[in-house]
């Protein structure tokens, strides 16, 4: 299979008068696994549909490989899209579904038969060729949809929340499967999801989107460890995000020292709840106000005399004895505090 690059140049998209994509620029290299991550309504699916040719761009240009495909219809683009609900053709059996793309390429019947049966084998459904889509399970449908998309050997595979309809266990298995298939075929994957864990576990790069713009573009561990903005931090699960004015409410030596060392144009800071050390102490600065159990960890909220609330989580057994109204002191390693641009 020949993998293709994607280049999005200054894309704008308006639905009526609503701007859903704003001057979007992105270059995706051949063979990359790029995830478009963001909350619903951020424009990630629209962007994917524009790459597939299912949606017009209002302005801007799309290149797939060296070809400008901005006004090329979807059937003439070297892309294949896979939908969340799989969109299997209900009147065709599994074999016909998988072979449909080859039939369109006017391959002869024997070649189609050969290729589809090798794919049926690959996805572990070799005895299911005569079944109809409604006669197989969700996970099996998902694999059929994947085979149907990959059998035409596209340069780019576009995936629109393909695991969204599966249960949690199956989703984990399929994440591993998809990653394997990606490295096996080496074609470019563009993957849309709102699930940060999915994005982190599979992608080579993540495009975090917010209101039609790129919020942050980086590789997974960078995004996880060093978000640039409070939006990115929140999306990556940082539960403690504070502006400078919030921090004034903090008497804690440790954090204040860090802030004084930082330059003054800094807007906000954040830190993970698990990076805070809890020291139970009579007359401590903070008082515990909530405690929740999550299996492998406890989550607490602590408040100080100025009303500043800090979220803490811990898997330490000693800490689990803490009750509401216990008094504690909190410390944090300076290196765990991340400065945010906005």
């Amino acid at each position: 299979m020949i993998s293709k690059s994607i280049n999005l140049i200054n894309i704008n998209k308006k639905f009526n008068s609503v701007e859903v994509i704003k001057s979007f620029n992105l270059k995706i290299n051949e063979g990359e696994f790029v995830t478009l991550l963001g909350p619903s309504g951020c424009g990630k699916t629209t962007l994917l549909r524009m790459i597939a040719g299912l949606e017009y761009v209002s302005s801007g240009e799309i290149f797939i490989g060296d070809e400008n495909v901005t006004s090329v219809p979807p059937n003439k683009r070297d892309t294949s899209i896979m939908f969340q609900d799989y969109a299997l053709f209900p009147h065709m059996n599994i074999e016909q579904n998988i072979g449909y793309g080859l039939k369109l390429k006017k391959l002869d019947k024997n070649t189609i038969k050969e290729k589809t049966s090798s794919w049926l084998k690959k996805i572990g459904l070799e005895n299911y060729n005569n079944r109809m889509p409604y006669e197989i399970s969700g996970g099996q449908r998902q694999r059929v949809a994947l085979a149907r998309s990959l059998i035409v050997e596209p340069g780019v595979l576009l995936l629109d929340e393909p695991l969204g309809a599966l249960d949690a266990n199956l989703r984990k298995t399929m994440q591993v499967e998809l990653k394997k298939i990606h490295s096996e075929f080496g074609i470019t994957f563009v993957y849309v999801t709102h699930d940060q864990e999915e994005a982190l576990s599979m992608s080579s790069r993540i495009v975090l989107m917010n209101e039609g713009e790129i919020e942050q573009l980086s590789n997974p561990n960078e995004l996880y460890d060093k978000p640039n903005t409070s939006f990115a931090a929140k999306f990556m699960g940082f539960s403690n995000i504070y502006s400078i004015s919030d921090i004034q409410l903090l008497n804690s030596e440790n954090i204040i020292k860090h802030l004084k060392e930082e330059n003054t144009n800094l807007n906000k800071i954040c830190f993970r709840s698990k990076d805070i050390e809890i020291n139970p102490q009579k007359n401590g600065e903070f008082k515990i106000i909530s405690k929740n159990y999550y299996g492998d960890l406890y989550k607490f909220q602590a408040i100080n005399s100025n009303g500043l609330i800090i979220n803490i989580s811990s898997s330490d057994n000693k800490i689990s004895n803490l009750e509401i109204n216990s008094e504690v002191n909190l410390t944090i390693d300076n290196s765990k505090i991340i400065s945010l641009q906005k």
């Binding site: 597939a52 299912l54 979807p74 059937n75 294949s80 609900d85 009147h91 793309g101 369109l104 998309s149």
Partner: peptide, 27 residues
């Protein structure tokens, strides 16, 4: 009929006329 049935067909290389007869008509 879900819109993305036809969209899936287009993305696999089907023209609009073809998808109308091969996807929508049987449905």
């Amino acid at each position: 009929i879900p819109k993305n049935l036809e969209e899936a067909a287009w993305s696999l290389g089907s023209s609009r006329i073809r998808s109308m007869f091969e996807i929508i008509l049987p449905s």
